[in-house]
């Protein structure tokens, strides 16, 4: 099998990615819940291919303020993971652990940034562990980098990876919900195409 574009993914392949997301983020929700001392729920992830302008709309429009946590994947699975946290989700999460809400997510102090980075580690670590357990492939995660800004600007970074090859991103909508409020976090997976091929080959899909 040779994937030349993300647009060649079929329904079975998307199901595989959905299931990896389901397992990985089930673990992440448990870990987050323990860390925050609050219930964190998760819906079954929805996996879809969106073009860039659609993805931006999905995240609340180009100028919607989000907290982006970007993590690089290395080893046998290369790519990037981007977590897009809504401002309210990020604020509540910070309040749960550090005792007070940040004034603005665009001006987080060192303590708050370090905590957000840790959340990124937990989310990405859980996802990658599930991926490794299912496929037998090794994947390492980088130290998370964080920036709060307009959704469109945050997305431009992973989008570049795609723009050179196709025009769609793999959007894994894995809505975490914190407490009673329906506030959410989304994950966007930007796998290198060769790594996706390896994942599907290991699982015997599409070969």
């Amino acid at each position: 099998m040779s994937l030349e574009s993300i647009e060649q993914l079929d329904d079975v392949m998307l199901d595989v990615l959905r299931e990896i997301g389901n397992i990985g983020h089930g673990n992440a929700a448990t870990a987050l819940s323990q860390m925050l001392g609050k219930p964190v729920d998760m819906d079954v992830p929805d996996v879809r291919l969106l073009d860039l302008n659609e993805t931006v709309e999905y995240l609340g429009g180009p100028e919607n303020l989000i907290l982006g946590i970007l993590i690089e994947l290395g080893g046998e699975v290369n790519g990037m993971l981007l977590y897009a946290l809504e401002e309210s989700f990020a604020s509540e999460m910070i309040e749960a652990v550090l005792g007070k809400k940040p004034e603005s997510i665009t001006a987080l102090d060192e303590m708050e940034l370090s905590f957000v980075g840790e959340v990124g580690n937990i989310l990405a670590g859980s996802y990658v562990n599930a991926l490794s357990a299912l496929t037998g492939l090794t994947a390492n995660i980088s130290v998370p980098t964080i920036n709060a800004d307009m959704a469109g600007a945050i997305l431009s970074v992973p989008a570049v990876e795609f723009a050179a090859r196709g025009s769609r991103v793999l959007f894994i909508d894995d809505r975490f919900r914190l407490g009673s409020a329906g506030i959410k976090s989304n994950m966007i997976l930007i796998p290198e195409l060769g790594s996706l091929e390896r994942i599907f080959t290991q699982l015997g899909v599409g070969t």
Binding site: E4, S5, E7, D51, L52, N53, E54, A163, A164, R165, G166, S167, R168
Partner: peptide, 14 residues
């Protein structure tokens, strides 16, 4: 630089 990656028209008509 991107030509090798098979750049195609976007689905949104761009």
């Amino acid at each position: 630089e991107a030509a090798a990656g098979g750049a195609k028209s976007g689905s949104s008509g761009v």
